[in-house]
Design a protein around this nucleic acid. Structure first.
Lengths: 210, 210
DNA sequence: AGCCAATCTTGACAACGATCAGATGCGCCC
DNA sequence: GGGCGCATCTGATCGTTGTCAAGATTGGCT
């Protein structure tokens, strides 16, 4: 039961339950994301009573928020990695979009939680804006020729890109798209074709459009 | 209790409970879409016992499906109406997208149900494809210069457009967008600007891109 | 008229989110 | 170093939900 004391701030007398709960939740989400996560199930998975979490989270929603935050971090990492691997100057935005969607496809339950929380809070975590995926998009847009001085235009473009990626992420799983997907040679090709249809993802058009 | 025998199949001895349930559900969704709809609440609203709905719907999900179907119809109507009012040849796709998002903004609860069901079924109702919003998008794309013969290209573009609209619909409510929205002069202008960023919505670019 | 079957109600069960009164034990202060 | 304070955890409980089984009720067909 006892786990080795990690370097992090180990709070009180039973180990780092908050951390344990978040990890239990992540485990459950990864295992079976079908239905929605139950707070009692998370407590069970962590080996504590159903009321224990309420000493670390005010709500079930606050636990989900914590899970979502981890998701945003992970998403940012994967997008950064995808960008690092991609050749410079060639469809960087498409690469970013594909990475975004691939994350949502490989972690559907976590992604759903991430966005459900965002909808509840009606706001996005600042970490996202400062150092996360949003920042990446802005940088790539500038790289693609957008004027860094034009704040309005930049934000508008970034939002548009994000909306498109989110829309694709939520719809690409529909069974009805399977034939077309197969016809194009798999999900990756399908995604690239889809994003390329949204011409904002093509640097030369972006530059001329603004 | 007895109502005049309508032309439709009038089921059995207590009036058209199925219809009453769907309407009760719609009423509740319109009234307060905050939390998710409870099957018991719908039964309560319709004035029947909590178990009564199970004679007309296998599940809670099947009731939600019925509600979603009404939503798709309503959405199609509103998009059709928006298109009818718009001037010909000028940003018809943007008009369509704006109408889509406006529907989702004015009926957020129903829209959420519509898409939650789609995600469960992993498929879209055929009515959508045949005579609904999807068909409208395809027609407008052709009108904008896409080759009607190129099925793959047409479907790809339609899916891309739809994805973008859906993404915008789900994200446009974020509080963080409020300043930019105000700066652009309201939601309508914000939406048009957003869609215009996705250059697929500009006919002359579409024609040249394909 | 009389029966069949579909409809609706009652009652029940398990699971859920949330709260509250106690038990438990860490850490700090004297 | 001993005792106390307080955060942490448990157990019980409440109201609600989805779903099911059994019984009451009623309309329609023969």
């Amino acid at each position: 039961m006892e786990q080795a004391p990690v370097a992090e701030t180990r709070p009180y007398h039973h180990g780092d339950l908050r951390r344990a709960l978040v990890e239990a939740g992540r485990r459950l989400l990864e295992a079976e994301g079908g239905s929605d996560l139950s707070l009692r199930a998370v407590a069970r998975e962590a080996g504590v009573s159903p009321a224990a979490p309420y000493h670390h989270f005010r709500d079930k929603n606050e636990l989900l928020d914590a899970l979502a935050m981890e998701g945003w971090d992970q998403l940012g990492d994967q997008m950064r990695a995808a960008l690092a691997e991609a050749e410079v100057g060639r469809d960087r935005l498409v690469t970013l979009g594909v990475a975004y969607v691939r994350f949502s496809r490989m972690n559907p339950a976590i992604y759903r939680v991430m966005f459900a929380c965002s909808q509840n809070n009606e706001t996005m975590p600042e970490k996202l804006r400062d150092e996360g995926a949003y920042r990446l998009v802005c940088d790539t847009l500038i790289e693609s020729g957008l004027d860094p001085e034009d704040e309005t235009g930049l934000e508008l473009a970034a939002i548009a890109v994000w909306c498109a990626a989110h829309g694709v992420a939520e719809m690409v799983g529909f069974k009805e798209f399977a034939p077309l997907q197969a016809h194009l040679g798999g999900e990756e090709a399908f995604l690239r074709a889809l994003f390329s249809q949204l011409d904002i993802f093509r640097p030369h058009l972006v530059a001329q459009a603004v």
